[in-house]
Amino acid sequence: MPEPTSYHVARFGWVKIVLAVYVVLFVLMLYGPFIVMVILSFQGEDGGPTFPMQGTSVFWYERLFNPSGTARDIGEYVGDFGNAGLRSLVLALLVMCISTVLATMAAQAMRARFLGAGPIFYLYLVGIMIPGVTVGLGHALFWQGIGIDKHWLGTTLPVHILWTFPFCFIVMLTVFNRFDRSTEEAAMCLGANSWRTFWHITLPIMKPGIMASALFGFTLSFDEFARTVLVAGSQNTLPLDVLGATTIRITPRIFAVGVIITLISFAVIGIFGYLMTASRYRPRFTGQEEHQV
């Protein structure tokens, strides 16, 4: 098989070099702020949210969960990051489960051609098309109108699902579209009804796809603030607390929060990555030579 090289630009070696340099710069721009943030989160006690570093300390991490004492003296936002983080975690897990299940159902249904499939597809997309703050305002006004108090879980869940479900759905649809239907047909022929086929065949084979969908659901929800800010009520989620923390005075504490949030995200990505790759049947003994029939 011919090497799938860049045959069409083969004579332009400099294009490749310029592009490579550009990609490196681009990735630096993506991660540069992160790196700066990590460094500054270890700023000394007397330092501000900028360089130069006034020594190094874990002072700002300690202050995350213990904001009393001198906090007010330096005009810092007193956030409740620990509890806000817990709330966000609960919310994101719930949103993840609901939207992944719904998305799997919807995508499975969409494989059969039925009347109205087209309009329903676009209805699902409307969820991400409506501007975020509009969704938040609309839901907030609705709850206010019918006299229900805003709550970080109760009234926030719907706006989050509206945001995450379409992404999960798109992922699931992409996965299903690349799924070999004949494995399911084989199962049906062997006596499995549609439910058992789904349970024994479709679901296990699709596990990586479902994981990807769940990952989208979790991170989008854990991170969401544009919709949440108007519907969450008095108890903040983590992003709202971060938003609050920037309103009064920015101290390196916000970078410490940023590092923690990023670590949580990485941990979640790692867990999902592990689960995704660990879903194949592993033979009990390997290393035998391949038999040729």
Binding site: D180, S182, T183, E185, A186, A187, M188, C189, L190, G191, A192, N193, S194, T197, I201, P204, I205, S279, R280, Y281, P283
Partner: peptide
């Protein structure tokens, strides 16, 4: 009748084996 209600079996061009099973 549904496929699973018939006593037929099928062999596929691309085998359609279950990749997650031995």
């Amino acid at each position: 009748l549904e496929p699973h209600e018939r006593n037929t079996a099928m062999v596929f061009q691309h085998f359609a084996l279950f990749p997650h099973m031995s």
